[in-house]
Write a protein that binds this DNA or RNA. Structure first.
Length: 578
RNA sequence: GCCAAAGUAGCUCAGUGGUAGAGCAGCUCACUCGUAAUGAGCAGGUCGCGGGUUCGACUCCCAUCUUUGGCUCCA
């Protein structure tokens, strides 16, 4: 018996076993498709009634029995008509059979009493599956063939592994993901909240969350000045003229907050910052000598995301983009792209993301702009990515209609990918707003426009940071960098003076003057994941020293206060994690 | 928007067709404490919101809002 089994084959076979189990329980079920996916499998069903978690247990029991019965998976090639006869009472399968291209073999797999239309491959017998190596995870809705016009089927997700040990490792990983959930940590660490009664998808930054945001923004602004950007501020609303000209009203009206009527004009909350930066550009005539312009703004935008799409900080209706627009002459394009990319990587690394992968998206079928501009811009993107030595994939035809782009995805501490930076060419807006500059030859020419966001949205980026660090931010980002914990009341005055001294150093300092016992104070500081806890009692007061408890439990006693101060300055300046 | 589940105190959750309960947090009092929860007491809820059924609804039904898991979408 083949022992080197492919996980994908195991998972796909597991999906068939699940379908058999579901049919055993509810024979009138119509089956759709059941592929292997990353970490597991799913199968879509058209069921006679909704499922409950109890059903998952029953299905699991049936699956275990099928696995233990050790029946073989038998492949058979059949004609189209035979297949149709076999699946006469399975409408979804009939549709799939019709979709198989002429000339392609139609194959079916049978295990026990269950036969499925399937290309395979499968394990030899259900004995190759491990009854302890799988778990049904969730029930969800899914459109037949992924089209929202089609009926909604019930999808059961499961995970499957070679054995129970591998399954447990994966389930531990899922538990880790749950522990890092930014919505949970946001509450526990008192960072932010959302209020359904005040409007879904709108974020309230609490003082502790706002401190993190301020640290992010302060760094962001400083680096932008250093890198040749100018910072601008623009309004939050604008007349419909802006969005008619930009084309947003045509394409995205349904995703915009509805209009506000005022003085016989229609105003909209901005879903994008671009037209506003363009207004600044259009405020005067520009010479080639002035370009490039690099204008950045932490611009808050509003988009009416569908109710079901909202998710914590990751998908919201009001958010702040770390946006910038570059207006460049065609011959500045290559250098500017290289610089933007280098800057992006520097920023991502500063926040602790060192595993970055690039995705270049090229011209889609429907697009605006000249072919030679698309070619040049796409070539510039590729060159820049290669120059930075980034690994990349090309998504042919995946660009927006207005220009090619690079997206940067980072891997977090537990290997999940998040898309953060994006650099996009825009051949549309310069045309629509008739942007020009006067070139050397005295002719008016069209500048290139590049949109870019390094962090994406501050809200989402914050969510990613929370999950990446599991709430234990590096000191430069931590809401409280230091908490002072007096052992007893007689150390209160000294502790307050110390707090003042440390604040004077620019540190974010908290002090625990509650009447809790020392143990409880440490526990509370630990739960807030404060990087440095200073225990202050008789010994420390006597010698101008501090006893430092790090949040990892490490403890160093009797550190001269001045030494501690310079240690923390160093860690913050170098943006180190401790 | 679609499918499904959920909504009970600030948080985490129990509970029942006869108008609600715990732990933590909060407040008060006592203890003044040396490395992950000191003890006692008090207070806190029109059980998401609106209808209906019923002698009686937090519980059953309908509608609605929101949240969660997915699907679709994501300029």
């Amino acid at each position: 018996m083949a022992k080197e089994l492919n996980l994908e084959t195991i998972r796909h076979s597991m999906a068939h076993v699940m379908a058999e189990a579901v049919l055993e329980i509810m024979p009138e079920t119509k089956i759709a498709i059941g592929p292997a996916i990353e970490n597991g499998f799913y199968y879509d069903f058209d069921l006679p009634r909704p499922l409950t978690d109890a059903d998952l247990e029953t299905i699991t029991e049936h699956m275990k029995a099928i696995i233990k019965s050790g029946v073989p998976f038998e492949r058979k090639e059949v004609s189209r008509d035979e297949a149709k006869a076999l699946f006469a009472d399975q409408p979804y399968k009939l549709e799939l059979i019709d979709a198989i291209p002429e000339g392609e073999t139609v194959s079916i797999y049978t295990q026990g009493k269950f036969t499925d239309l399937c290309r395979g491959p499968h394990v030899e017998t259900t004995k190759d599956l491990n009854a302890e190596g799988f778990k049904l995870l969730s029930i969800a809705g899914a459109y037949w063939r992924g089209n929202e016009k089609n009926p909604m089927l019930t999808r059961i997700y499961g995970t499957a592994w070679k054995n129970g040990k591998e399954l447990r490792v994966y389930l531990d990983h899922l538990a880790d993901i749950e522990k890092r959930d930014h919505r949970k940590l946001g509450k526990e660490l008192d960072l932010f909240s959302l209020h359904e009664e005040a409007g879904p998808g709108l974020v309230y930054w609490h003082p502790r969350g706002a401190r993190v945001r301020q640290a992010i923004e302060e760094f962001w602004r400083g680096e932008h000045y250093k890198n040749g950007y100018e910072l601008v501020y623009t309004p939050h609303v604008g007349k419909s003229w802006l969005w008619e000209t930009s084309g947003h009203l045509d394409f995205y009206k349904d995703s915009m907050y509805p209009k506000m009527e005022m003085d016989k004009a229609d105003y909209y909350a901005k879903p994008m910052n671009c037209p506003f930066h363009i207004m600044i550009y259009k405020n005067s005539k520009h010479s080639y000598r002035e370009l490039p312009f690099r204008w950045a703004e932490l611009g808050t935008v509003y988009r009416y995301e569908k109710a079901g799409a909202l998710h914590g900080l990751m998908r919201v209706r009001g958010f702040t983009q770390d946006d910038a627009h570059l207006f460049v002459t065609p011959d500045q394009m290559d250098d500017e792209i290289v610089e933007v990319l280098r800057f992006s990587l520097y920023m991502l690394h500063s926040f602790g993301f060192n595993d970055v992968h690039a995705y270049i998206s090229t011209k889609p079928e429907k697009s605006v702009g000249r072919q030679e501009d698309w070619d040049a811009a796409t070539a510039a993107l590729k060159k820049a990515v290669e120059k930075e030595g980034l690994s990349y994939d090309i998504d042919e035809g995946g660009g927006a209609f207005y220009g090619p782009k690079i997206d940067l995805k980072v891997k977090d501490a537990i290997g999940r990918e998040w898309q953060l930076s994006t650099v996009q060419f825009d051949f549309n807006l310069p045309e629509r707003f008739d942007l020009t500059f006067v070139d050397k030859d005295g002719q008016e020419k069209r500048p290139f426009m590049i949109h870019r966001a390094l962090l994406g949205s501050i809200e989402r980026f914050f969510g990613v940071l929370i999950e990446h660090y599991a709430g234990a931010f590096p000191p430069w980002l931590s809401p409280d960098q230091i908490v002072i914990i007096p052992v007893g009341e007689n150390a209160f005055d000294y502790s307050k003076a110390l707090e003042k001294r440390l604040r004077g150093e620019g540190f974010r300092v908290a002090i625990d003057l509650s009447d809790d016992r020392l143990n409880a104070k440490i526990r509370n500081a630990q739960k807030l994941k404060t990087p440095y806890m200073l225990i202050i009692g008789e010994k420390e007061m006597a010698g101008d020293v501090v006893s430092v408890r790090y949040r990892n439990g490490k403890q160093v006693n009797g550190v001269p206060t001045a030494d501690f101060i310079s240690e923390v300055h160093g860690v913050i300046d170098r943006k180190e994690q401790i």
